[in-house]
Design a protein around this nucleic acid. Structure first.
Lengths: 339, 339
DNA sequence: TTGAAAGCGCTAACAC
DNA sequence: GTGTTAGCGCTTTCAA
């Protein structure tokens, strides 16, 4: 228990303390091969006694195996990726794999850097958000020779496997539903495009569906940063002042939509009678607000689970490269869309 | 660019491709020592050409240095730890250190396991939430011989350094303020104690302050799981039905408090005239709700920043072991506390 | 400025 | 069931 020497403990220390060879100690600690009960106990006692913690760096180098899965996502501060992580963790917990997270802040350069850093630890697999990556990033992923699952989005061609929803389709479906419900003066409030490809695709699908119905977006406003609920309020106030005849507001995410909804309720608008509203994501955190915003579930936790499962299977030599999973989200009209 | 061989690239490949010794290639790639411009360029070109990504496993084993900081926290799914992470990341970004996160779900056994896993990668430092750990966990942390910063809480004795607020004091201060404002029929709504030591300490400080003012908690209710906003609503409805004479509701976190506040507004209660309300954390996400709940900022991002700074300094041989930082949160009365 | 040799702490493969 | 040997891919150290 008490050691004077600050040198980290090694297998050799356990070997000497227990009088068992290093190799056998290693076997015991990894539960590998046949070791007699007596020896096992001797080793375990010595290891615990000393407070030995194995050195995975050395183990990984020797065995050429690292039980890490690199997970590369834009951010943890909105409500979407933590749920994806939950799905990944839940699934990997049943294996000996561990997720390690890298954040990109939606910046391609940062993605490239983070990917490089993570690959330098030689993970067993990669789960990465989105289908858009720099050439260098794609080259690294291909060269890594490990299973790669691109998640969230299925509108494009994956390097290897992909799991997600079609954001273009999601945008299109909500657009169709809005037009079908008879709305003609439609406002869009969302994140600035460019950084977030999925938001862009939703917007494209949305305008496309409107166009088919002979409708154009009547007003739009983009934001970045700030508290989403408060931003939603502000933007909605501005837009309804500027374009008081709007009869539908479509938000690129539930949080700003919720802010907008709170404002509309306070101002006494008849929602959805006079103005319909919808967001995107199916954020559960918002359950408990006075009214439930219409939304499309982005299947975040399931995406995480499926992606992790693909990696796990591939590492067990089950499953083929190039698996493609497109989940089908459905519209939840909540309390803010006419049916 | 195109390789048939699935074998990962090594320094030797770059060495052969560039006609420079492995040692010199290594120097170039790490920007160490003097290398002629000509050689440097040759090496860089070859490395890029091949798409070489260094193997940190091997590097770490050889150099006995790992630029990782283990961050061990209970959860990512509430609003508090993501902000702590933001502070840690911001600070570490200015160094060559990288955070790696492990989650405990507030379970001591899981904490022990996660800690063991993380320490087996021989990180350069550890940031861990809370001051309560199993004996085994404490032993591991001490034996690791690396800087350890315990965060969030300062009510206790750290293994090495600590950065946080006194939750007992925070509870006491809000309790005092409530009593001073003349409230006598006080309800408490919070997380079940036992798992979350900090929530427990706040509650203890709270009841202590009430006792000093000759007041007892008139009604209390605990919850776990579910959507916090919705839970806050439910619990508040139940409590106000059961104990209609309450004149203050204190919640152990802002989210359930916000749910409660929404319910109170809908039911037409005069807040804070007839019933005062307060939460805890200073969650910015909630800015934008109709009214602002009184709260105490838990200084999450600053805690992250300070903790990371302590690790970074110690690794540069600046700063001493055993540093203790207690931040002083202040009450924000918002719109729900009489002043 | 460059290179050669000797490990870092562990495990695969094989012997006993 | 247990031990021995030879690396894993880098970096440290020292020599040239």
């Amino acid at each position: 228990m008490t050691r004077q020497d600050p040198r980290p403990l090694t297998l050799r220390d356990v070997s000497e303390a227990s009088g068992v060879s290093e190799m056998t100690v290693s076997r015991v600690l990894r539960n590998r091969g046949d070791v007699s009960q007596a020896t096992r106990e001797k080793v375990l006692r010595a290891a615990k006694q000393l407070g030995y913690v194995p050195n995975k760096i050395a183990g990984a180098l020797a065995s050429q195996r690292v039980n890490l899965v690199a997970v590369i996502i834009p951010s943890m501060s909105n409500l979407v990726f933590p749920e994806v992580m939950t799905g990944i963790s839940r699934t990997l917990e049943e294996t000996d794999l561990q997720p390690v997270v890298g954040l990109t802040d939606y910046l391609p350069e940062k993605e490239e850097k983070v990917l490089y850093e993570m690959l330098s630890w030689r993970p067993s697999g990669v789960i990465i958000a989105g289908l858009e990556h720099s050439d260098a990033a794609r080259a690294m992923l291909r060269a890594a020779g490990i299973p790669v699952v691109e998640i969230m989005d299925t509108d494009g061609t994956p390097i290897d496997s992909m799991v997600g929803i079609s954001h273009r389709r999601a945008g299109r479906e909500i657009g169709q539903a809005i037009v079908k419900a008879g709305h003609r003066r439609i406002g869009f409030l969302g994140t600035g495009v460019g950084l977030d490809h999925r938001a862009r695709k939703r917007f494209e699908g949305f305008t496309e569906a409107l166009a088919k119905g002979g409708v154009e977006v009547a007003d739009q406003e983009f934001y970045s940063g700030g508290s989403a609920l408060a931003k939603g309020r502000e933007m909605t106030a501005e837009m309804m002042t500027r374009s008081p005849d709007l009869d539908f507001l479509y938000y690129s995410n539930d949080l700003i939509g919720a802010g907008g909804l709170l404002w509309m309720i306070e101002k006494g608008y008849d929602v959805p009678g006079r103005v319909g509203m919808a967001g995107f994501n199916g954020v559960r955190l918002l359950n408990g607000l006075p009214r439930k915003l219409a939304t499309i579930d982005s299947c975040r936790e399931e995406i995480g689970r499926r992606a992790a499962q693909i990696i796990a299977d591939r590492l067990k030599d089950q499953g083929e490269p190039g698996e493609k999973v497109e989940l089908a989200p459905t519209i939840d009209p909540g309390d803010t869309m006419r049916r």
